[in-house]
């Protein structure tokens, strides 16, 4: 069966500690719950969670929605934001996990990538190298989320098709964001026979689509 792979790259650097990461955890739980109520998503969506701080960690490899056990993501006390390393890790996973169509096998739907960060990449050179490589993987859409006052949309522009901003790192902002991610995934599910560009659903008031 054709799967709709969804990759979530989440910033777990020190600055996410406390309320922000709890809001993210709640957001993911609510998102998975909501997607399970969408029959098409329940049959097709596969989710992978990758976190990045000083390291990049595959918290959940690509897993079917009905088999997924929502993990709780923790943050280290402090540390850099190695987004470039995360992209490198992601690329390895996508190449290994996402199936392309061949005459003898059925390909997956083009995957989605959501990248959430509250800072700027610390490993700028690796990040710059990885952006074009990740873009070449053929994602249906790469959506960036810059959260809080320290993150700038300019940092994610080389990577993303769309960027949204969250002014604050509180639970209202993240719950709004993950709700919107949910409807984007549900929508992506429906564009059966999709053309090149992916249309995003209108965002809730907590988030602004800036790019």
């Amino acid at each position: 069966m054709r799967r709709l792979p969804v990759y979530l790259l989440l910033d777990t650097s020190g600055s996410m500690r406390g309320e922000p990461i709890e809001a993210v955890n709640t957001g993911i739980r609510v998102m998975v719950s909501a997607l399970r109520q969408d029959p098409h998503a329940l049959e097709t969506v596969h989710v992978s969670l990758i976190t990045f701080d000083h390291a990049a960690t595959v918290v959940t490899p690509l897993t079917a929605l009905d088999e997924l056990q929502v993990p709780v993501i923790a943050t280290p006390q402090s540390g850099p934001t190695h987004l470039g390393l995360a992209l490198q890790t992601l690329r390895g996973r996508v190449l290994a996990e996402v199936k392309k169509s061949t005459p003898a096998s059925k390909g997956d739907w083009a995957p989605y990538l959501f990248v959430m960060t509250d800072g700027k990449p610390s490993d700028l050179q690796v990040f710059a190298e990885q952006c074009p490589l990740v873009r070449a993987l053929g994602f249906a859409s790469i959506i960036g989320c810059v959260a809080g006052p320290k993150a700038r949309k300019e940092d994610l522009e080389p990577l993303c098709d769309h960027i949204v901003t969250l002014d604050t790192l509180d639970s209202a902002a993240f719950s709004g964001f993950f709700k919107w991610v949910t409807s984007t995934i549900s929508g992506g599910n429906k564009t059966v026979g999709a053309a090149a560009s992916v249309k995003l659903p209108p965002p809730p008031p907590e988030i602004q689509v800036v790019f």
Binding site: R2, K100, S101, P103, K106, G107, D108, W109, A110, P111, G138, A140, T191, V192, G193, A194, A195
Partner: peptide, 13 residues
């Protein structure tokens, strides 16, 4: 003619 792209749902119009 098989007219699918590398991912599911991708095709020509």
């Amino acid at each position: 003619l098989p007219d699918s792209g590398e991912f599911a749902g991708q095709t020509r119009f």
